[in-house]
Amino acid sequence: MDELELLKKDWQSNRTEYPELSYDEIYKMSHAKSSSIVKWIFYISLIEFAIGLILILLNPKIEGQIEFPRWVEIMSYATFPVIGIFIYFFYKNYKNITATDNIRKLIKSILKTRRTVKYYVLFNLVMAGVFSCVGLYVGYVTSEGGAEQFSANAHFAEYATLGVVIVIVTAGIVALFYGIYYLLYGILLKRLNRNYKELKKLEV
């Protein structure tokens, strides 16, 4: 249980023993906690962006063995400007929450932050699924001698088996990414959502 919840519980259970928290005090505490949470969301997205950029610069593909289509390489580079835009929104949300001076604006900023995080996670999960499918297909076809030889020799059963394997493995990879994002952002969003509910009570 966080500090705000403890103070509220004490406040409600024993009013004679503890000083009452004013509207402004509860608001300031929720404001500070929300600002801290959004700051961490911004920092984590920066770290994630840096790791992805390092991996791209190191070019971790198996050179001379796997050649991805040109459009895949273009898409992989194109994801970085999109992620950069999300990071900018995270930073903007953090600055807006920090500068907010009333409860209605703070509630709107929290809602905007939640939407931004959800779209960001969805975008990354879709990209993880696309790159997993392409990577698995290209890797298998390369191991069979290349696209032309594979197309010439493969039968329907082999295509069907490969398709099922790709779907299962991709689902596992996306589920793994979802679990990681839940740990990174889901817990922070839950805390932010608690603050949102508390602020809605104050607004009433």
Results as ranks from 00 to 15, higher is better:
Leu188His: 07
Tyr159Arg: 09
Leu199Gly: 03
Ile180His: 03
Gly52Tyr: 05
Lys39His: 12
Tyr120His: 06
Gly139Met: 05
Ala128Ile: 15
Gly146Ala: 06
Phe80Val: 15
Ser36Ile: 07
Tyr178Gln: 06
Lys201Gly: 06
Phe49Ser: 04
Ile51Val: 13
Leu58Ala: 12
Leu192Lys: 02
Leu162Ile: 07
Arg104Val: 14
Ala78Thr: 12
Glu63Trp: 11
Lys200Tyr: 03
Leu125Glu: 04
Gln149His: 12
Glu158Arg: 14
Glu3Val: 10
Ile47Cys: 09
Trp11Phe: 13
Ile85Met: 08
Lys8Cys: 02
Arg70Lys: 13
Val167Glu: 01
Thr142Phe: 08
Lys105Ala: 10
Ala50Asn: 11
Glu148Val: 13
Ser35Asn: 07
Gly145Tyr: 08
Lys61Ile: 14
Gly172Asp: 01
Ile173Ser: 00
Tyr137Gly: 00
Met29Lys: 15
Leu4Gln: 01
Gln149Phe: 14
Ala128Gln: 12
Glu203Phe: 15
Phe123Gln: 01
Ser22Asn: 10
Leu199Gln: 03
Leu199Trp: 04
Phe42Ala: 08
Phe49Arg: 05
Leu57His: 08
Gly135Phe: 02
Ala50Glu: 09
Ile44Glu: 00
Met127Ala: 11
Val138Trp: 02
Lys33Arg: 12
Val164Lys: 06
Ile85Lys: 08
Asp101Pro: 06
Ile187Gly: 02
Arg115Asp: 07
Leu53Gln: 09
Trp40Val: 14
Thr116Asp: 06
Ser34Val: 08
Ile87Val: 15
Leu46Val: 15
Lys201Phe: 12
Ile166Cys: 03
Ile168Thr: 12
Leu125Tyr: 08
Met75Pro: 02
Leu188Cys: 05
Phe86Leu: 04
Gly186Pro: 02
Ala99Lys: 15
Ser76Thr: 12
Pro81Asp: 04
Leu125Met: 11
Thr16Glu: 09
Glu20Val: 14
Ala32Thr: 10
Glu198Met: 10
Gly172Val: 02
Tyr120Asp: 00
Phe177Glu: 01
Val167Trp: 05
Asn124Leu: 10
Asn102Tyr: 11
Ile66Tyr: 04
Ile66Arg: 05
Ile66Asp: 02
Asn96Gln: 09
Lys200Ala: 04
